[in-house]
Every structure is written in structure tokens, then in C-alpha cells.
């Protein structure tokens, strides 16, 4: 009994040392990864980051044990030219949310360690400027063409 207790305490301490404190003010929802055609080694992931606090929060880095490397990018179309720009950070304003969505901000997931297809999941760790972090499970899904059909929204000003 004592042995078990000690083991439990040790493991709790251990996890406290290795992981950054959880950020309690940020809520991350709808995290998903777009399934990529076979052999393509760069995937995109999307999510909504909600800041429930009265202070702006800065997202500083993203990582995933399932991928070699993760970056935050912004897709832009300027004068018919599509380009992606790497972002070093992302500010989530106080009591506001920022959506990472197709055609805008997205996570670039480079070189998956195993092939991922619809239904698989991957862990994504968001780390903020104050060294707190938030871990989410993102599900791999096929793209739904209706989801980025902007035509319904165009006239709702």
C-alpha cells in the first residue's frame, strides 16, 4: 500500500516537472487535421482558440509527437497569388477567440511519423508566452467542401 502511494507521488512529481503548467484560460475546440492525399508529407490542422480571461494571451509554439515539426502559417491571396506566411506567434485577444480555419491561419504539420488517414488522431500541444500549455487531441478528417463554401456568408453584413 505504502509502495503504491509512493509510486503515485513520484509519478505525479515527475509529470509536474516534465510538462508545462496547463493554461486554464484558453479553451481549444474543433481541433482537426485534414487528411492528405497518399505520400504527401505536409498536412494542415485547424482549431478554435478561445481566451476566457481578461488579458490577451500569446501563442508561441506548437508541437506534436506524431510529427517531426509544426509551424503556424497564414494563407493569403493577394492579387490572385496564393501564398503562406509563417507566423512566429499569434495573439488571442482578451475574452475573444481566434479561428484557425481553411484558407486562413492553420497549423502546418510536417513529416508524419506514420501515415494518418481519416479517423486517426494526433496530439497537438500549444505553448503560450508564459510557458503554460494546452494539449488537445485532433482527429483526422476528409475535407468537407461545404465547410469552406463562403457563398452563404457573403451577404450577411
Amino acid at each position: 500500500m505504502h509502495k503504491i502511494k509512493r509510486l503515485l507521488i513520484t509519478s505525479l512529481l515527475f509529470s509536474g516537472i516534465t510538462c508545462a503548467a496547463e493554461n486554464k484560460n484558453i479553451r481549444i475546440t474543433d481541433a482537426w487535421i485534414s487528411e492528405a492525399p497518399p505520400t504527401i508529407s505536409t498536412l494542415a490542422a485547424y482549431a478554435t482558440l478561445q481566451n476566457k480571461s481578461g488579458k490577451a494571451v500569446m501563442l508561441r509554439s506548437i508541437a506534436s509527437p506524431e510529427f517531426a515539426h509544426v509551424e503556424l502559417h497564414l494563407s493569403k491571396i493577394v492579387a490572385d497569388l496564393a501564398r503562406m506566411e509563417k507566423q512566429d506567434s499569434l495573439l488571442i485577444p482578451a475574452n475573444d477567440s481566434v479561428a484557425l480555419s481553411p484558407g486562413g491561419y492553420h497549423l502546418m504539420l510536417f513529416n508524419p511519423k506514420r501515415p494518418l488517414t481519416a479517423g486517426d488522431t494526433a496530439t497537438i500541444i500549444f505553448t503560450f508566452a508564459d510557458d503554460t500549455s494546452k494539449t488537445v487531441t485532433a482527429t483526422v478528417k476528409k475535407r468537407n467542401t461545404q465547410a469552406h463554401d463562403h457563398s452563404h456568408h457573403q451577404h450577411q453584413h
Binding site: A36, P37, A44, H73, A82, M84, D149
Partner: peptide
């Protein structure tokens, strides 16, 4: 016109074209 390693704009466009 695009490139296969493009994970956002290209597959969005290709999915819409498929549809």
C-alpha cells in the same frame, strides 16, 4: 496551378473542383 506539398489552398481548391 499549385503544388502537392501545399496543405491548405491547393487541397481546398481541389476538393471544390472534385465536387
Amino acid at each position: 496551378f499549385g503544388y502537392t506539398h501545399c496543405p491548405d489552398i491547393c487541397p481546398i481548391t481541389m476538393a471544390v473542383l472534385a465536387d
